[in-house]
Amino acid sequence: MELSESIISSTIEIFESMLMMDAKAGDPLDEEVKTFRCSVSGIVGLAGTHKGMLSIHIPETVAMAITASFIGMDVDEINEDVKDAIGELANMLAGSIKSALSENGKDIQISIPSAIHGQEYSIECLAESDWVIVPFQIPPGEFLVELQLKST
């Protein structure tokens, strides 16, 4: 399965089952996005037969709406709950991608998720790696799912 197809099927399944939201995928981007503004990014590292990074980049307002849906409470600021929720989204996506990249996921390890939030920040991963970025649309807005990979 193409990487973009794995990202799309995993993202749609997670949003449908955990958030009861329909996520619609757009066409994968032609250019990398390295700088994000007023956003929250959840990141999980991959190591083993493939190394790289799975990340999800979500504008603040969309991240707050996702978190509110996750925990069943209103969220009106980017707090620890939001960063934890977006990190957990990245964790679930990485687990699905891991299984798609390696039979039973046995040759790839995933890191503990982390989350970044800021008015403007850049994320650099691996030089000369393959990358896929897929945009998604959900009722509260848009977000990006990114996979950077390098075979070892």
Binding site: I14, S17, G95, G105, I110
Partner: peptide, 27 residues
């Protein structure tokens, strides 16, 4: 309960005494 639904890691959990497994995302 884990994002990692692979047979290897679930098998290891079972051998260590786990009575069942649930894959994230779940219902």
């Amino acid at each position: 309960i884990s994002t990692e639904g692979g047979a290897d890691i679930i098998g290891e959990a079972t051998s260590l005494g786990a009575k069942g497994s649930i894959k994230k995302p779940f219902t």
